[in-house]
């Protein structure tokens, strides 16, 4: 239960190793998009290290309230598209002009209009595949270490989850350099300290119709 136990001598925040399954976070369920957006505003203002909102359909403006940054995905698309374009140019120049120069209908070897469809198609192919691949990489799917805390958030429930911070065990802390420990503690100190009961009460206070703690559990556990 207790996630944030204190090491007696130094007063550091560590993970309680006795706990079988560490806490993933606490979840509050809300009545619909409007109460959810209001709650997300306050959760963000509370300055927890990490939280996320779960909705059955996209809600415009939610990403702004959550403070999500823009995805780097368009740059992947642009870069891959240009790569595809150049690949098509080089492939066709190499085959039609350098390696196998064949006179077709008296046209020049580098008859670029005939090659434009390939340039277009490879641009689209590279850009499309890279975008899908990069999207999975960026959003971390598939992540078998995490499972849905409630399948109904894809159907009719609106939820906010405040994630428990990843804490180090006492052994891990002992193995770390002093500078590393200082960085770790500085990072923890920059955010509101996560206490399970307090966070549950906090979500309830925001008007959640139901709150619960969620344990870490993978797909196959």
């Amino acid at each position: 239960m207790a996630t944030a136990a204190k090491v007696p001598d130094k007063g550091r925040i560590i993970m309680d190793k006795a706990q079988a399954r560490p806490l993933a976070g606490v979840v509050g369920f809300f009545d619909g998009p409007a109460p959810l957006i209001e709650a997300v505003k306050k959760v963000r203002a509370a300055n927890y290290e990490s939280f996320d909102a779960y909705t059955p359909y996209p809600i415009h403006g939610l990403e702004k309230v959550q403070g999500l940054k823009r995805s780097p995905l368009p740059f992947v698309t642009l870069g891959a598209g240009l790569t595809g374009f150049m690949s098509a140019v080089m492939l066709q120049y190499g085959t039609s002009v350098i390696s196998w120069p064949i006179n077709v209908g008296g046209k020049p070897l580098w008859s670029w209009p005939a090659f434009v469809p390939i340039m277009f198609e490879l641009t689209v192919l590279f850009a499309g595949l890279a975008t899908v691949g990069a999207m999975f990489l960026i959003n971390g799917f598939p992540n078998t270490k995490k499972r849905s805390f409630d399948p109904n958030v894809t159907r009719d429930r609106f939820a906010v989850m405040i994630d428990a911070p990843k804490l180090k065990t006492a052994e891990e802390l002992e193995d770390m350099e002093a500078a590393e420990i200082a960085r770790y503690e500085k990072k923890l100190a920059a955010f509101k300290k996560f206490e399970e009961q307090e966070a549950l009460q906090f979500l309830k206070g925001l008007g959640a119709v139901e709150v619960k703690s969620v344990e870490e559990r993978g797909w196959f556990e």
Binding site: P113, A114, V116
Partner: peptide
């Protein structure tokens, strides 16, 4: 525009 051009250019 390119479709119109390319078909005519190609068929010649």
């Amino acid at each position: 525009a390119f479709c119109q051009f390319m078909l005519i250019w190609y068929a010649n």
